[in-house]
């Protein structure tokens, strides 16, 4: 490994350049940096515009698929915003929709509402777990759950996303959910079997859903009452 210095005379430049260094006018430094920055900016604007549609389309598709999945294929859905402790479909004129919490109300083909798709996130074992779940306010049951983002231990905690048995546990279970260790279920309709070895991640998922419903449940009830 003696050849590590071959041909990359970087270490030899400084002592050489030091004695014969001449003063470079500062305008040249500014021009160099300025023009590099300008070219870089121009290039980035071009690439940004070229890639942005695909990126946005992908994000929209991820959301669409998630809502489809947790509400079991709604015909269409409305986006509702959480404003001042209530749900509204039409935002007040001057409100900026960015940054507002959203829930999605899905409908059957015949116009009957199926339920709400609600997103939520809380700390799991390693980092925040983000998920979306469907909720039927009529029967107070969860209709489906999908983890959108997690950094849980690969092969263990990330089973909350990848283990289809665990994900299916949520379909049709009553709220509030209760996590039980596998093999200890009593058969109650609100029980969710947790993943062996990933108790903390499993609990986090259950807690997210319960907490979101504690917060949004009354709002959903109020919204439905108003709509009738």
């Amino acid at each position: 490994m003696s050849g590590a210095g071959d041909g990359n005379g970087g270490s030899r430049v400084l002592p050489q350049a030091a004695p014969q260094r001449e003063e470079v006018p500062s305008w040249r430094l500014l021009v160099t940096l300025g023009s590099t920055g300008a070219i870089a900016g121009l290039l980035l604007v071009f690439v940004y515009q070229a890639t942005q549609p695909a990126i946005q389309a992908y994000r929209a598709m991820v959301l669409r698929q998630a809502v489809q999945e947790v509400l079991k294929g709604p015909e269409r859905w409305d986006t509702l915003y959480v404003v001042d402790g209530g749900l509204v479909q039409e935002l007040p004129a001057e409100t900026d929709p960015a940054g507002l919490e959203m829930v999605f109300l899905g409908y059957h083909e015949d116009g009957q509402p199926i339920g709400f798709a609600i997103t939520g996130g809380e700390f799991g074992f390693q980092d925040i777990i983000d998920l979306i779940f469907g909720y039927d306010p009529g029967t107070k049951t969860v209709t489906g759950m999908k983890v959108l983002a997690n950094k849980e231990t690969p092969g263990l905690g990330d089973k909350i996303e990848k283990d289809s048995v665990f994900v299916a546990e949520f379909d049709g279970s009553e709220t509030p959910l209760v996590g039980v260790k596998s093999g200890r279920a009593t058969g109650a309709a609100n029980e969710v079997d947790m993943i062996t070895g990933a108790t903390i991640s499993s609990r986090a998922v259950i807690a997210i859903i319960n907490h979101r419903l504690e917060l949004l449940g009354p709002m959903i009830a109020a919204y439905l009452e108003e709509a009738n």
Partner: peptide
């Protein structure tokens, strides 16, 4: 200047990969 140039191409790679 090098960092500026490198950062530009990194951002390009980042956006392209995401798309």
């Amino acid at each position: 200047t090098y960092i500026l140039i490198i950062a530009t191409f990194v951002t390009i790679a980042d956006m392209t990969l995401e798309a």
